[in-house]
Design a protein around this nucleic acid. Structure first.
Lengths: 232, 232
DNA sequence: CATGAATGGATAGCGATGCTGTCCGCTATC
DNA sequence: GATAGCGGACAGCATCGCTATCCATTCATG
């Protein structure tokens, strides 16, 4: 298959595919002539994956590049591989995914740098206690944990420090979902499939859960405030 | 307080604050002279909220504008208000939140437009059955439900149609979290606080849950693959 | 084997986004 | 009255995700 058909099948414009090739999101096609390449089903699959991570997952092109590099990296123990893949998916959500890298000038940001503020210290302590209480085997400095710290600190700064009271419920639900995820992932046999499942499950799973949470909220809100039936 | 102190307190550069003022994310300060304004605690609070939605929530400036308009809108029944606020928070996650608005040229996108593809049709059906089974009171065409449809269709397209098997578990967890959220929200008395709680809870709650899910996955993965203790 | 469309590859440009920098005339404060 | 900061307007900038243009080559078709 040549680039035109790849484009037709996936709905992605040819110049965009070329762009992804340049950025390394898509491996080069097999050259049949000095300037003629052919693409296979793997390319199509990969391309769809890229689009899904972009459109549904909200990852940046650069982030997708890193993640896919991890997917294609065939070394290391499985657990670490999964951890690496999952870890790389965090920051996109941790800092909003847009723009990026301006941390030096936000004194109240309280994230990485030098002098953590009061909210961050408290949040870090709370997270540590949560991990302890749950018995989670998480290495200190884990990026997801750091993202959680940042989110909690942010909540506190916004005057919603009370939100931490919900943490246990959230954690309970997350644990359930996390187990489910792992079961799903564990069905894979080939290592590459496995890592891909982690990526897909993590990124699109976030979107799925977020949507479900909104729906559940709407229902809960209907129950609580709109005693009359909805206008359906 | 003048703009300089507002900047010092929040860590947001003065020109950025001016920019937010221009964009309507922040109400104008009270003019004490033709060219001298003073800002209060409300401004500081609002500014922190804006930054949190931007950095942790990943919302665009434009989206924040709309959401804040909803927060400040004091009419309409509570339930609808909540729905409106929550609804406005969906698309950011549904399409990745970046760039945006290019749906006409992606034939395989399967979202809004004219001819929904097979994956979308199946996903829509699955979602309808889920809502039915759960007894959720959700109006047809709800944006969160549409986002879920899009995410499931995307999963199918990527070859992870099997992911739908996890839906019930996800929904169960989401329901739990949704109830928790509503309890939290219901503590508010003033209507404005209430809507703000919805916004904060929804947006930052996503970040919190996503982080917790990653952590739970790491733990589950450790249990499953790394029988030896982690290198802590 | 001539012709037109498509290809691979390279480079430049575009539109949106989230700021940032500069300038102005004014004001508050010392 | 000097100096710092202010509000307001507007132009500019860096990043991102494409998109457009160009070129020589190759393929499909008659």
């Amino acid at each position: 298959m040549r680039i035109g058909e790849l484009s037709r099948r996936t709905g992605v414009p040819v110049p965009t595919i070329k762009y992804y090739l340049r950025e390394g999101l898509l491996p080069a096609g097999e050259l049949t002539s000095p300037n003629q390449a052919s693409y296979g089903e793997g390319h199509e699959r990969r391309l769809r994956l890229v689009r899904a991570l972009l459109e549904v997952g909200g990852l940046s092109v650069a982030a997708i590049g890193e993640v896919l590099a991890a997917v294609d990296d065939k070394d290391g123990p499985v657990h670490e591989l999964l951890g690496a893949a999952a870890t790389r998916l965090v920051p996109e959500f941790g800092d909003g995914g847009r723009g990026g890298g301006r941390e030096a000038d936000s004194r109240a940001g309280g994230d990485g740098g030098g002098a953590p503020d009061a909210e961050t210290v408290l949040a870090r302590d709370r997270v540590a206690r949560l991990i302890e209480a749950r018995g989670w085997r998480i290495e200190p400095g884990n990026k997801a944990a750091e993202a959680l710290v940042a989110a909690l600190a942010s909540l506190a700064r916004v005057g919603h420090g009370g939100f931490v009271d919900l943490l246990d419920d959230y954690a309970e639900a997350a644990e359930r979902v996390g187990r489910t995820d792992l079961d799903y992932v564990a069905r894979r046999v080939a290592r590459e499939d496995l890592v891909e499942a982690v990526v897909v499950g993590t990124v699109l799973g976030d979107a799925v859960f977020a949507a479900l949470r909104r729906m559940a909220q709407v229902d809960a809100s209907a129950q609580m405030f709109g005693e009359e039936a909805p206008r359906a």
